[in-house]
Design a protein around this nucleic acid. Sequence first.
DNA 1: CAGCAAGCTGAACACGCGTTTAGCGTATTG
DNA 2: CAATACGCTAAACGCGTGTTCAGCTTGCTG
Lengths: 224, 224
Amino acid sequence: MHSGSKDDLTTKARIRQAAVDCFAREGFSVSVRAISEHAGVSPGLIIHHFGSKARLRGECDAHVRRFIAGIKTETVEGFSGTSMLQQLAEVEQYASVLGYVVRSLQSGGALAADLFELTVEDVERFLAVGEEAGTIAPSRAPAARARYLTSSSLGSLMLHTTLHHPGHTPDFRRVVQEWIAEYMFPALESYTEPVFTDRTLLDTCTPREGGTGDTGGGAGAGTG
Amino acid sequence: MHSGSKDDLTTKARIRQAAVDCFAREGFSVSVRAISEHAGVSPGLIIHHFGSKARLRGECDAHVRRFIAGIKTETVEGFSGTSMLQQLAEVEQYASVLGYVVRSLQSGGALAADLFELTVEDVERFLAVGEEAGTIAPSRAPAARARYLTSSSLGSLMLHTTLHHPGHTPDFRRVVQEWIAEYMFPALESYTEPVFTDRTLLDTCTPREGGTGDTGGGAGAGTG
DNA sequence: CAGCAAGCTGAACACGCGTTTAGCGTATTG
DNA sequence: CAATACGCTAAACGCGTGTTCAGCTTGCTG
């Protein structure tokens, strides 16, 4: 037994890679048989190595999680979520990982929530750095702002993917490029020249804690 | 034979309504048997009336499409997408339709693209009205801005749904309430007090065109 | 009333799915 | 060399799916 993570040429690692590719391209409902065909093995071998499709998914999640954590520590700290996505999109090898992330965000689950929280933290740190440098305006609720910006950005990317690339998506680098090309300017404009000229709307919304004070589910949007 | 579309108490209409409910709550992968159980009929009857599950889905799409069009003409013109969603969320009967819309946006397809374009038009009109009234600042690319605002809003709502309510979602009104409670203030703030204090980023991005201008892969930057 | 069409059902069919199982080939090992 | 263990495959199993089919009611119609 070669115990997986040492060789990258192990059959088990090859299966995992094929699974990440297939999950990214076709979504998590892709069949075990399709993955096995992509990996050049029999369907039974996948179960033999991973126990079940769910556990295979779990190991893929962990792999992607480690992969992204590796990228983050590799590069300089203080990266925005979008920049990370761009970086992911540029390198060919990263394409499947990026696709996997988007699929994960589309389907929910533990990895999705994990990555979202991770990105929120990054964005918050990035904004704080910018604020100190003077390029980013301070906010009355920095944590909530970082959360909102992350949610709208990732959500927009998700929506763009589902709308313009239904079914299996062959090339996620192109998707991200399209997305940037379409939304970069209006986003930059909206966050540089304020959309609302009237402050009434903002002042109406009580700025005490970041929420509207509704008792609804404790989203905990306030201070992080 | 009651000839379908006249009575709303027709079995066929009841099946359609049950299908909309199930699709909204459990997603489009819900089984025909589950729908039939919810409607109090046999699975075969669904096929007998609609031919196939795909055609049932098609009729549900059309029904929701008509429903939303009805709401829009019913209310005053010039509604933002968010307001429409809010309105949808408030009335109990609309809950399943709202859920259906979100599911549709999650899965892609013709209805999703249709509704998205429809909302973009609404938002653009809404912004134009506000601009004329002086509450909304003019944009160098109004169409692109409306598109961006729509995409980020709907995308954020989608992401919130998938992250915080995986699997079947019983009450979409609450989801929207949570979403508003969490993101209303930071969104308002970000669009009233500019996030970027430096105009350099915006000026770097060439503002040449109004539509979906491809500004190409510009330099990476902040999350909006 | 007889007959026929339509609403409707319960059982069955064909298929794809994840998973199991029996067995093959091969390499390490006592 | 014989034995054991492991990587691996082909075939099959059980299940859930969308769909079909034969037949039962029911109500309109000539």
